[in-house]
Design a binder for these strands. Structure first.
Length: 253
DNA sequence: AATCACGGCAACCGCGCGAGA
DNA sequence: TTCTCGCGCGGTTGCCGTGAT
């Protein structure tokens, strides 16, 4: 079955909006609202535009309280962190950033943040990789069911300290990582590695001595498998807590 | 000064979903 | 229950400005 077009394509204008068209749309919506029907709106407003085009123009550009450009470092951190858990759910990410549209965030990610993230380096550890940014201020603990963890364990505090000290970008701190599905990570051409750390010592031992960076099979990660012991190379202990950094590091070259 | 390459961003397209008939 | 229609979302395209050559 062929889907019916939403409007008469031969009779609608495409391309950039003129100031006159903007004013017409703004004035109409201020007077009448959207009426809950974008398809009929352009005809009623006297615009030779597709309803979807009007909706997009209004939501992404003309709507009041829209912020354009000038993303703050805090907003960048929030976007990076949410992307590491949600993937490209731009509308949900936008909902966490008042005044930002999904399109704006998507463009910002594709043009700036993705590159920034993909070239990020981990500092410290056994990998001799250095960082160029300050410690990430945005840090989130996640429970095995995906809800925020309420653990008061001192391990969590240690993990936060470790994350802020060694990871350039916001990292997720995972509680009970053996049960927790790996978050989506921004891989390039399906190659890359999630650099993780876990506690491999006995309780009571110094946490910082027992973090090990290791790689996770990208195929397993991409398929959303759990972060289980078999994914860990050379680490035999139960990964009760862990840090997953969205930092990209191509180990397959 | 002209041309080319690239990045940023606005806008379009197609699909999935949900509501309602 | 099925079908239609509109909305919303994410991916993609293409234009435009700017810097490099």
């Amino acid at each position: 079955m062929v889907r019916a077009p939403c409007c008469d394509k031969s009779n609608v204008k495409k391309g950039p909006w003129s100031p006159d068209e903007d004013n017409t749309l703004i004035n109409y919506i201020h007077k009448h609202g959207t009426g809950g029907n974008w398809i009929t709106l352009p005809r009623k407003a006297g615009l030779k535009r597709c309803g979807k085009s009007c909706r997009l123009r209004w939501l992404n550009y003309l709507r009041p309280d829209i912020k354009h450009g000038g993303f703050s470092e805090e907003e960048d951190n929030i976007i990076c962190s949410l992307y590491s858990t949600l993937g490209s759910r731009w509308s949900i990410i936008a909902a966490q950033l008042p005044g930002r549209t999904d399109n704006d965030i998507k463009n910002h990610w594709n043009t700036k943040l993705k590159k920034k993230l993909l070239t990020a380096k981990i500092k410290g550890g056994n990998n001799e990789i250095t960082t160029t940014m300050s410690a990430a201020p945005f840090c989130k603990a996640v429970g095995s069911n995906g809800s925020s963890s309420t653990t008061s364990s001192s391990y969590m505090t240690d993990l936060k300290t470790y994350q802020q000290k060694y990871y350039e970008y916001p990292a997720l701190i995972l509680d009970q990582t053996d049960q927790f599905p790996m978050p989506y990570l921004p891989f390039e051409n399906n190659y890359g590695a999630a650099w993780c750390s876990n506690r491999v010592g006995n309780e009571g031992q110094g946490m910082m001595d027992h973090f090990v960076d290791f790689e996770v099979d990208p195929q397993n990660v991409l398929s959303g498998s759990s972060f289980q012991e078999e994914n860990i190379n050379g680490v035999g202990d139960d990964p009760w807590f862990g840090i997953v950094s969205a930092t990209h590091y191509n180990i397959f070259d």
